[in-house]
């Protein structure tokens, strides 16, 4: 049985193929490379795994030290939110803010520049055809790539910088407007401060907006029970079930609102 395969078991070594220039395919050996070679398994793999172990431990420590962020639930009515993409899209995002990449030139920023950059990368082997491989022997390719890198770093930095300044001018921390509450404020006010969904329409300061009425004197029209009912079931334009929190917190919030006369 085993004898049948004897002639093709000679796989030890490398099976690289270089481009055929006539002649049969012969797997070259590594004698063309100077220095010591070693088999992939187990010698080299072990080294790779050592690096993998170190990376994994660092990675696990990171995941434990920094829980993944989760902001307030999506609220399509909150137009004051300033969005940010994932950090590796910052440079594309920032690119769209400049004069010749926005307004009537949006296409330049969204399609032309990224498209050209991606096409150039995709076709790099055919644009940079010389046989030389050292970076300094192919100055055009190297300098273009360095330029692109510098641009990406700059745009990413600019995006972060602008966002931070914007947030500072808004006075908000994480994007969603939040209210400053003193620690000795009534329980209901603290709960209200967390209800970004409610604030989206009724305003952080209860002043209301558009179709959402002001809640500054809501207690003069409605009792605590009626408020609870409206929060739970909605009313008119107001969708039901927007409150985030426990039943007890809902009662406290309604109690606080009912005192607003």
């Amino acid at each position: 049985m085993a004898g049948r395969h004897e002639k093709d078991v000679e796989y030890v070594g490398d099976s690289r193929v270089i481009k055929r220039r006539g002649g049969p395919l012969t797997p070259p050996d590594y004698t063309e490379f100077p220095g010591k070679t070693e088999p992939f398994y187990p010698n080299f793999l072990l080294k790779e795994w050592m690096i993998a172990v170190v990376s994994l431990v660092a990675f696990l420590v990171l995941t434990m030290a920094h829980p993944s962020p989760l902001e307030a639930p999506a609220n399509p009515n909150d137009t004051s939110y300033t969005p940010l993409p994932d950090w590796y899209f910052f440079f594309l995002y920032q690119l769209l803010k400049y004069e010749y990449t926005s307004g009537p030139y949006t296409v330049v920023g969204t399609i032309l520049i990224p498209g050209l950059a991606f096409a150039a990368l995709l076709l790099a082997p055919w644009l940079d055809r010389g046989p030389k491989r050292r970076p300094k022997d192919r100055p055009v390719a190297t300098s273009l790539m360095l330029l692109a890198l510098a641009a990406i770093v700059f745009l990413t930095w600019a995006a972060v910088d602008e966002h931070q300044k914007h947030m500072a001018s808004q006075g908000g921390g994480s994007g969603a407007p939040t209210v400053e509450v003193s620690p000795d404020a009534p329980e209901g006010e603290k709960i209200w401060a967390k209800q970004t969904t409610c604030q989206g329409c009724h305003g952080v300061d209860l002043k209301g907006s558009g179709f959402a009425p002001s809640l500054e004197h809501v207690g003069s029209n409605l009792s605590q029970e009626q408020i609870v009912d409206i929060i739970k079931n909605g009313k008119g334009q107001m969708p039901p079930g927007q409150f985030q929190g426990s039943e007890e917190e809902l009662q406290k919030l309604a109690e606080w609102l009912a005192q607003k006369k």
């Binding site: 078991v9 796989y11 030890v12 070594g13 490398d14 099976s15 050996d29 590594y30 490379f33 100077p34 220095g35 010591k36 070679t37 070693e38 088999p39 992939f40 398994y41 010698n43 080299f44």
Partner: peptide, 11 residues
């Protein structure tokens, strides 16, 4: 064996 035994060059 193709995967396990291929030689990894020094560089």
């Amino acid at each position: 064996r193709d995967l396990a035994d291929h030689e990894v060059p020094e560089h």
